[in-house]
């Protein structure tokens, strides 16, 4: 694999942190703690690449997505888009930079305003970024967008309830494409869809990426879908990335115990593999992100934990037994996806 040159990087975060304050009192609010939703995330996204982000509910995936598109303000850290730190930009400069990074949301049923026509929904970004398309050409541009995502341009005056779930997700994608971004952050874009519709939307996202050279951050809890669409994958646990690598490294050669447990729990649609795969059953629940365990955050559920795991936080780095970055003192490969002899 060729070493990517720096100019290929379209998005880079460095030590990105988002803490939500926990307050007590109604009139006089005092902060009594913080939910450490995203707690020091470093990642790079390259041109034309899809980075999958996986992890259990509450690990910080959506918060990360919102930080990237500017819907939440980071507590600290930086977000560089094409070499500009978004967290430092203001006013017109910020607006222009934001055009470049758009978002597609999970729920096609609630993320679209039911009282707006499809044309208005897709064209709405042009109201904010009036410089992108001259007023007179908007309708034409919206029709092109509808066509691009496989919807009938004649349906421009229909309302969201007149479309199915998969079609609504296409509307969401068309809207995200309106400002011609380079980067699209997809937060669970197919999770609410039926399997037969899911494949339609996945194929659409792949086609658009090829045609438009888009880069995707693809967030999902379905590890099979992520394997299908992602070039690289980041595994999150309690606000941190615990393992990151190319698709093959994460699925064929996972080295972090959490990744291994997660993968082993995913059922495979093949009954001949029943009981043939290595099964790791995790005990207990994810600890509260307001009060994460010391040292390694996974240690309360980890079957390999030693004293050092409570004392020293393992860095996300390559290790003797892990060719790709893994945040475990005892990282080593284990086959959990295929049958074991």
């Amino acid at each position: 694999m060729s070493q990517p040159v720096a100019k290929d990087v379209v998005l880079e975060t460095s030590n990105l942190v988002k803490h939500f304050p926990i307050t007590r009192g109604i009139v006089l609010q005092t902060q009594v703690g913080a939910v450490r939703a995203v707690d020091g995330v470093d990642l790079k996204l390259r041109r034309g690449e899809t980075l999958g982000v996986v992890g259990e509910s509450g690990c910080g995936k959506s918060t990360l997505a919102k930080l990237l598109v500017g819907l939440e303000k980071p507590t600290s850290g930086s977000i560089d888009v094409r070499g500009q730190d978004m967290t430092r930009l203001r006013g017109a400069e910020l607006r222009r930079a934001r055009r470049n990074i758009q978002m597609v949301l999970q729920d096609p049923y609630t993320s679209l305003n039911p009282r707006m026509t499809v044309g208005d929904i897709i064209g709405e970004p042009f109201d904010i970024h009036t410089e992108v398309v001259p007023r007179g050409e908007r309708k034409q541009r919206v029709r092109e967008l509808l066509d691009l995502v496989g919807l009938n341009p004649e349906h421009i005056n229909r309302y969201p309830h007149q479309f199915s779930g998969g079609q609504r997700q296409r509307i969401g994608i068309a809207r995200a494409l309106a400002l011609k971004p380079e980067i699209i952050v997809c937060d669970e874009p197919v999770s609410a869809l039926d399997v037969s519709i899911q494949a339609q939307v996945i194929n659409l996202l792949e086609r658009l990426q090829d045609e438009l050279g888009l880069s995707y951050i693809f967030i999902a809890h379905d590890l099979s879908v992520v394997r299908h669409i992602a070039d690289r994958v980041a595994v999150m646990y309690l606000g941190k990335i615990v393992e990151i690598g190319v698709e093959d490294e994460i699925y064929e050669r996972p080295t972090h115990p959490y990744t291994q447990a997660l993968l082993s729990a995913v059922p495979v649609p093949d009954p001949t593999l029943r009981g043939q795969r290595d099964q790791i059953v995790l005990e207990g629940d994810v600890p509260s992100p307001a009060n994460p365990p010391s040292g390694c955050r996974f240690r309360t559920r980890c079957w390999k934990a030693q004293d050092i795991c409570a004392e020293q936080e393992p860095a996300l780095t390559e290790r003797e037994q892990s060719a790709h970055p893994s945040a475990c003192h005892f990282a080593e490969e284990r086959n959990v996806v295929h049958a074991v002899e």
Partner: peptide, 19 residues
Amino acid sequence: SIPRLDMKGQQLNVIKGLP
């Protein structure tokens, strides 16, 4: 039409239309 955890580079078949 479903992606599998244990396969890569799989071609997903699309079921056209809606129920």
